[in-house]
Computed example of a mutant assay.
Amino acid sequence: MEHLEAVVIGGGQSGLAAAHALAEQGVIPLVLEASDRAVGSWPRYYDSLTLFSPARFSSLPGLAFGGNPDRYPHRDEVVAYLDRYAARLDADIRTGRRVSRVTAGAGGYGIELESGEHLSAGAVVAASGSFGRPHRPALPGLETFTGQVLHVADYRAPAQFAGQRVVVVGAGNSAVQVASELAQVTRTTLATRAPVKFARQRLLGRDLHFWLTRTGLDAAPLGRLLRTPPGQPVLDDGRYRAALSAALPERRPMFTDLEGSKARWADGSVEAVDSIILATGYRPDLPYLTDLDGALDPSGRPRHRDGACLAHPGLAFVGLEWQRSLSSNSLRGVGRDAARAARRLARHLSRR
């Protein structure tokens, strides 16, 4: 059995940031990535996805994004950037390696791969993100709806929905962005439990992320002040607010029921619907930790404090939403959390 100092599970932005931070501490990790490229889930996001943060605020530690720092990079630019980052990283990155199980032992942790391969490590970083676990809420009648139901994780472009009656469920950035582009080709409703909240993308001639960085609200602990229900506001340069005002898409309170292929709305009206797209977020994708006692709570969420596992000192999480701040699961913020986790794990390894 191959023994490593540290294994990072996941080769996306969180795993790459963790590997960089561990190398800075003198720990050369092995990165295990399930797909064939160390770029995480980015290639699978919808085609029109564009970052809400400018390039100058969208890089991982050690490598600037490049190009015009004030532009808002497209999905494919992020993929190319992560490719460059992985190529420069001082780490062993093995793709096509899906981890199926992590267990605790006297020498640290046992890591079992779906291929049947077994490894062991003194420390483990769980950085597998959440894209693999889309959240599908229990909406009335959804189980028996006879039309098409998909999560925004499976959405790519509006062309396939042309001429359909579409309902997008959600009030976040993805929901508004996808519903707005669908409304250009077909009748689309954005169904939400509360009115959509907007935040201006630019203030006093500067992008919002400039002010978040300058004030410290982008980092822990002050950033937690922005975590207020029902969630973060939609960042907008004016386009999306104008689109909703023009009913492109229309915004309606959540449907009260689904009957066959029809939706019943709060005002009592009933209409046929072809497709429902759930832009309802994600949950941490950590099935390989199920057998590691105390690592997860009964719902599958990690039990941690600021990324440190409460039950296992050699296990850290990186890239969780709101792990330490509002930017913990973003390109601009994951490096801070990764550095903190790497320092803690380096101390743990030195005591063994």
Rank of each mutant, 00 (worst) to 15 (best):
E181A: 06
E117A: 15
N173S: 05
N68T: 01
R251F: 01
V196H: 14
F161I: 09
A341L: 11
A341D: 08
S130Q: 14
A19R: 03
A157C: 06
I276N: 12
H135R: 14
H348G: 01
E250G: 15
L345A: 06
D83R: 15
F198I: 11
P195E: 05
G116M: 07
G66M: 04
R136E: 13
V8R: 13
A87T: 09
A106N: 12
G223P: 12
R347I: 01
T192E: 03
G10M: 04
D293P: 04
S269I: 01
G268Q: 11
E114N: 03
V152I: 10
G110W: 06
L142N: 04
R56L: 02
S245Y: 00
R202P: 00
A55L: 13
D76I: 11
R133M: 08
K262V: 01
L244F: 04
R206I: 00
P73Y: 02
P61H: 06
A91N: 07
D36H: 05
L203F: 15
H151E: 01
S48G: 06
R239K: 11
E250N: 12
G67L: 01
Q164C: 07
V78D: 12
G216H: 09
S48A: 14
T189V: 14
F52S: 08
D236A: 08
E250R: 15
L60W: 02
G62T: 03
L113N: 03
S275R: 08
V79F: 07
G307N: 11
R193V: 07
S328K: 04
R98G: 09
G319K: 05
Y109P: 03
I276D: 09
L320M: 08
V149K: 13
D337T: 03
E143K: 05
M1G: 14
N329W: 06
E2N: 11
